[in-house]
Simulated assay, not measured.
Amino acid sequence: MTDPASTHGGGNLAVPRRILGFAPDAADAWIVHLDCGHRRHVRHRPPLSDYPWLGDPAARAARVGAPIECGRCGRGELPDGAAAYRTTDAFDETTLPAGLRREHTLRAGRWGRVEVLAGRLRFVMPALAVDRELAAGEHAILPPELPHHVEPLGPVRMRVVFLRAPAPDLPRES
């Protein structure tokens, strides 16, 4: 799910994510299911992409839990099917918790959306080279496990919506 309002940062940065499993596609390539909720096609086509282990079932299985880059996380794209499960109360510049003002992360597999309801808010996520101002009606996407913080820029009202991606439907033998 691409959300142009949330795509931010330094362009095409990739974020290391853990492989949960593999599923074949119709074109004889492999789809990697990642712990962030994204899926990624992986093909062994040297010299452009070098994944010789894809052709061996035991070698693929050994890669479960290993890191691989996710460009969609780097672009701040929510995984397909991500659904809200909790929303905070609205905070203003005086009630904004100290924990949101200092660097913190969301746990693995959990996403967030910072929504500015009124005023202005500074949103900072150094790993993706993000330092931007959000105005009323704007939002920023929070990928899992990436340090970030917010700072009020005068009077502000904001909230955080927490989301999670559906569990991948992986074949028993990938």
Score class of each variant (00 low, 15 high):
2 T>E: 15
2 T>R: 15
4 P>H: 03
5 A>L: 13
5 A>P: 01
6 S>K: 14
11 G>K: 09
13 L>F: 09
13 L>D: 14
14 A>D: 14
15 V>H: 02
15 V>Q: 03
16 P>H: 03
17 R>L: 09
18 R>V: 00
18 R>G: 02
18 R>K: 11
20 L>K: 00
21 G>S: 07
23 A>M: 06
23 A>S: 14
23 A>L: 10
24 P>G: 02
26 A>R: 14
27 A>H: 15
27 A>Q: 15
27 A>K: 15
28 D>T: 03
29 A>I: 07
31 I>C: 02
31 I>D: 07
33 H>G: 01
34 L>M: 14
34 L>D: 09
36 C>W: 08
39 R>L: 12
42 V>K: 11
43 R>N: 09
46 P>Y: 08
48 L>A: 12
51 Y>A: 15
53 W>K: 07
55 G>M: 06
56 D>C: 02
57 P>N: 04
60 R>K: 03
61 A>N: 06
62 A>W: 07
63 R>K: 13
65 G>D: 00
67 P>Q: 11
69 E>H: 09
69 E>D: 14
70 C>E: 05
70 C>G: 03
73 C>A: 06
75 R>N: 14
75 R>L: 14
77 E>V: 06
77 E>C: 06
79 P>S: 06
80 D>N: 09
80 D>S: 11
84 A>E: 15
85 Y>C: 11
88 T>W: 03
89 D>E: 15
91 F>N: 06
92 D>E: 09
93 E>G: 08
94 T>V: 10
95 T>R: 04
99 G>A: 12
101 R>P: 06
101 R>G: 10
105 T>K: 12
105 T>C: 13
106 L>Y: 09
108 A>R: 14
108 A>Q: 12
110 R>M: 11
114 V>G: 05
114 V>K: 02
115 E>R: 14
116 V>R: 03
116 V>H: 06
116 V>P: 10
118 A>N: 12
120 R>T: 09
121 L>W: 07
121 L>G: 01
121 L>H: 08
123 F>Y: 15
125 M>D: 05
125 M>I: 00
126 P>G: 07
127 A>L: 14
127 A>C: 03
128 L>V: 06
130 V>A: 01
132 R>N: 06
135 A>M: 10
137 G>Y: 04
137 G>P: 07
137 G>L: 05
138 E>W: 08
139 H>T: 04
139 H>M: 05
140 A>L: 00
142 L>E: 15
143 P>Q: 01
144 P>A: 05
144 P>M: 07
146 L>Y: 04
147 P>N: 02
148 H>G: 05
149 H>D: 00
154 G>V: 07
154 G>Y: 09
160 V>M: 08
160 V>S: 04
161 V>Y: 01
164 R>E: 13
164 R>L: 11
165 A>W: 00
167 A>F: 09
168 P>M: 06
168 P>I: 02
170 L>C: 08
170 L>G: 05
173 E>W: 08
